[in-house]
Amino acid sequence: MSEKNQRAHDLRMYFTGFGLAVTLTALSFLTAILQPFGPVGLFATLAVLAIAQVVVHFRFFLHIDLSRQAREDLQLILFTGLLIAIMVAGTIWILGDLMTRMM
């Protein structure tokens, strides 16, 4: 790839990410403002849109992908994700349980 093409390619990466991020953010805000789905539907929609947007940011702004070279970093992210899932889910579970018992 020539230098000029490479530059255009690098810029396109950021603009694609930006476009997708703006779209997903707008969808999140619209869902929360218009509330077409009720409470459970709202939380589910926000969760899906947020996860999709996190993936977009990792892919287009932080350049994490499935290629061989980036795999160490991907493993680090996934391991951090596992730690977070255990700690956050555990905290919410235990403290939520305590709260219902206190009521």
Partner: peptide, 23 residues
């Protein structure tokens, strides 16, 4: 990296803290 990372945290904040407040 740090600057882009803060965006990712912000996605969590508006999805968890602010938007559910509109319910």
């Amino acid at each position: 990296l740090y600057w882009h990372f803060l965006d990712i945290i912000w996605i969590g904040i508006f999805s968890v803290v602010f938007l559910p407040g509109l319910l």
